[in-house]
Simulated assay, not measured.
Amino acid sequence: MTDFLSTPQGRRLAYHRTAGSGPGVVFLGGFKSDMTGSKAQFLQAWAEDQGRPFLRFDYSGHGQSDGDFLDGAIGDWFEDALSAIEALTEGRQVLVGSSMGGWIALLVARAIPERIAGLIGIAAAPDFTEDLMEPAFTGAERAAMAATGRIEQPSDYGDEPYVITRRLIEEGRNRLVLRSPLPLPFPVRLLQGSADVDVPPSVALKLFDHADSPDLRLTLVKGADHRFSEPENLALLAETLARLPV
Score class of each variant (00 low, 15 high):
residue 4 F to E: 01
residue 6 S to P: 00
residue 10 G to L: 00
residue 11 R to I: 02
residue 18 T to K: 02
residue 23 P to I: 01
residue 26 V to S: 09
residue 27 F to I: 06
residue 30 G to Q: 05
residue 33 S to Y: 04
residue 35 M to P: 08
residue 40 A to R: 09
residue 40 A to F: 12
residue 47 A to M: 01
residue 53 P to E: 01
residue 57 F to W: 10
residue 59 Y to T: 03
residue 64 Q to L: 15
residue 82 L to N: 10
residue 86 E to Q: 15
residue 90 E to N: 12
residue 91 G to D: 01
residue 96 V to Y: 11
residue 107 L to I: 08
residue 108 V to S: 09
residue 109 A to I: 07
residue 111 A to Y: 04
residue 112 I to F: 07
residue 113 P to R: 05
residue 121 G to P: 01
residue 124 A to Y: 09
residue 125 A to M: 06
residue 126 P to I: 05
residue 130 E to M: 01
residue 132 L to Y: 10
residue 134 E to G: 00
residue 138 T to C: 02
residue 143 A to C: 00
residue 143 A to H: 05
residue 146 A to Y: 04
residue 153 Q to C: 00
residue 153 Q to E: 12
residue 156 D to A: 08
residue 159 D to P: 13
residue 159 D to K: 02
residue 163 V to H: 03
residue 165 T to W: 07
residue 169 I to E: 13
residue 179 R to Y: 06
residue 180 S to G: 13
residue 181 P to T: 12
residue 183 P to E: 00
residue 185 P to F: 09
residue 189 R to T: 14
residue 190 L to R: 07
residue 193 G to I: 03
residue 195 A to E: 06
residue 198 D to W: 00
residue 200 P to Y: 02
residue 200 P to D: 02
residue 201 P to W: 06
residue 202 S to W: 11
residue 208 F to A: 09
residue 209 D to Y: 12
residue 211 A to M: 08
residue 211 A to R: 03
residue 212 D to I: 12
residue 212 D to E: 15
residue 212 D to K: 10
residue 215 D to H: 14
residue 215 D to T: 06
residue 230 E to S: 09
residue 238 A to Y: 01
residue 240 T to R: 03
residue 240 T to N: 12
residue 243 R to G: 15
residue 245 P to I: 02
residue 246 V to R: 06
